[in-house]
Amino acid sequence: MQLFLGPYQVGNSLYPLALDLFIPTIFFFFFGSAYRVGRYLMTYKKPFVAVPIASQEVVRGKISSIERVKSLVDTFSNSSKVGLKRKPVTTTAGLLMHLGLVVMIFLLAQHMVFWAYYLPPYRVLFPLAIPESSTDGLLSLTMSTFPRTPTPYPFVHDIWGPLTVILNGQYISFLLLVLLGIYLGHKFHAFADGLSLRAGDWWFFLLLYVDIVLGLLATSHIPNNVVWYDNLLGGHILLAEIIIATLPFTRGFHMFEFYLGKIREWYFMLYRRGEK
């Protein structure tokens, strides 16, 4: 059966459907975010600061700007520093995964074009784009890791030069799948130990995992068939849309709240002690 939705024959491919749903997704995301932020505002109680640090001559009353900046850096880095020392495997996996995701989402050439279509100023970042594969012009899974291109250029033309060997969509996708695998393994371990596990953990990680696989298959043209390509790419975008739309209701929202939490912590370190 074919459904007619706008100018697209939805039944033919997921790709146009996914594109049509992007704007509603963004609306849904903003609606959810407003709900989340609204709850904070509704429960906010203005604190009574009885003993501001600055009023205390015997503790750190006066703090130089350099100390403030150093303290801000410490606040943001402490979690990783302690984690690397005491939980090296999961912390390294976590850090690399976050780095990989940020690079993939915001710098992969195909993603940049997509973002710039909706947000034209995004184009200024185009020079930083990373390619889908390290080899020039060949979208091949098997040729991804070292230059084996028939063109005179050893690497794709980008500013990353030889770094392209690792800074490319395919390599980072593999890395992400391994790292997410470690994380999922960690979750299974927690499950086996009867430790806290939440439905949201599975929701987010599994969606992300499948989404990366779909994106990888689509850009690698596996299977090499245009109908499959459209569906895989459409599926990839649709899953991403589900992730974006549900962000305010899931752990994914930490990409915004992380900054709030750390700046709050820093404020308490420097300006207000006592109960948090």
Partner: peptide, 14 residues
């Protein structure tokens, strides 16, 4: 914030 922002990363175990 404490209740709803936890990502269950278990970094706090350390």
């Amino acid at each position: 914030y404490y209740l709803q922002s936890c990502v269950n990363c278990k970094a706090c175990e350390a």
